[in-house]
Design a protein around this nucleic acid. Structure first.
Lengths: 251, 251
DNA sequence: GGGCACGTTTGATCTAGGTCAAAGAACGTG
DNA sequence: CACGTTCTTTGACCTAGATCAAACGTGCCC
């Protein structure tokens, strides 16, 4: 099904300009590879999928073939319980990987849906594994990426398990801010791609609560929100929200 | 592509005696490897650590060298926030791996402490990676183990983000039960190794709430608990607890 | 084996956040 | 551009679970 042709150098140059931004190198592998290796690596990317807002990248239950790297756009993924409850497990932006949950059973365990039109690189996992066998640095990088997902999830568990509503939202906003900043976008003002309800699902809160906390932060001069557009007015203040809620450890 | 030879029962018996206690084979790699490969694999295990109740297997901030496989015993791991809040991120029993969070940054991000005297296999990660480069099936298995951790964490996020106290505890107990059963122990009666407070931390509840829900389940004839010893009286009933709390999706 | 620290249970309150409701605001679509 | 739909805000109220408090068990250590 994959039409994987071996490319010549000239092709590669062209390819890079075509799917430039979609190179794994740029995306998530800023590591010292030899040109030859990068060449091979580039060929890992099988498809360049374009996913429209609202479309699924994959659905729970679908067979696993590939990992996906977000080239541009914004996605969410969520698991749903039998009774229809939906728990957003992550929001994914440029340079991030999705689909790693599916390696475990060769079946996707969550739905991934685009919150805005997105470009996605599909990376057949078998190929990635094979290649990472010959390029140790890639292997290590793959492991780091999976490990990072585990660390991230632990952070969310901390958030869900022991933070108050205001702390959760502050932590969430700061995390988004930091991720945008790391990608060269403004970390102090951007458009939220998700609804209040989706934020709530991610944070274990109801949408009304999310809305109220937004309003409170705005009153306090920490941020300014109008609809999906948010501006950070007092990052230090936001950071201070986290942790100041639990005053009472036994003395 | 993996050279998967199916082992004969006799081989397996022999292998088990050779690399008895701490063999990765027994622990977590019940997969078709050639004897030669298993031999090499066994040498992966560097130390055989014995950790006493209350001892740390590792602490947050410690440099990462190895993954750990639990040979026997019971551990918890937890992250702690600046202000001292502790969030238990997992309980680990025989055959499970810990330490994968540290791959990401080469530093452990959580504390792992033994809840009872435990035997642990230390597996130097560099060696494991090197070996998995030459044994595709091991490589795949490692990836599956990491992916399984991600899936598990997503499950906890669902639990923390959208379940009520009773559902959380029921889900927790059923999970423990299933894990004991999968290891050949009774899934219907066992000793809880952790305190109510640790259960609470894991489930995002206070210890009093955990205790109250235990009592409620006992009154309802679902379980019988005395102290740390628990017996399951009505597994179907316990399962039914999960999901029956959210009756009201918009009709 | 006695004492003490720790873990557990249960009760009485309190409150953060959920629920219900309603009105506006933005947005995408024909 | 008008309309319906979806998203957001805000208010009033309520409840699940937190908090505070006290008593009791248990098991560990000297």
């Amino acid at each position: 099904m994959a039409s994987r042709t071996i490319l010549k150098q000239s092709d590669i140059a062209q390819l890079k300009s075509v799917c430039s931004a979609c190179s794994l190198l740029e995306l998530c592998l800023p590591i010292g590879l030899e040109p030859k290796e990068i060449d091979k690596l580039d060929r890992l990317v099988e498809h360049h999928r374009s996913v429209k807002r609202g479309d699924f990248l994959y659905r729970a239950g679908a067979p696993f073939r590939s990992l996906f790297a977000v080239r541009s756009g914004f996605l969410k993924s969520y698991v749903l319980h039998d009774d229809g409850r939906e728990q957003v497990t992550g929001f994914h932006m440029m340079g991030e990987f999705v689909g790693m949950d599916a390696i475990s059973t060769d079946v996707h365990t969550c739905d991934a849906v685009a919150l805005e039109n997105s470009d996605i690189c599909e990376i057949p996992f078998g190929t990635l594994e094979a290649f990472s066998r010959t390029v140790p640095i890639l292997q290590r990088h793959l492991h780091k990426i999976m490990s990072r997902e585990i660390v991230r999830d632990h952070g969310v568990m901390l958030l869900l398990g022991s933070m108050k509503a205001e702390e959760r939202l502050a932590a969430f906003l700061l995390n988004l801010s930091q991720r945008y900043a790391a990608r060269g976008y403004s970390g102090t003002s951007f458009h939220l791609r998700m609804t209040r309800e989706e934020i709530g699902s991610y944070l274990g809160l109801k949408l009304e609560t999310v809305s109220r906390v937004f309003s409170k932060f705005q009153e306090e001069g920490l941020i300014s929100v109008q609809n999906k557009y948010i501006e950070f007015k007092d990052v230090a203040g936001l950071k201070a929200v986290i942790g100041q809620q639990h005053r009472c450890q036994r003395s």
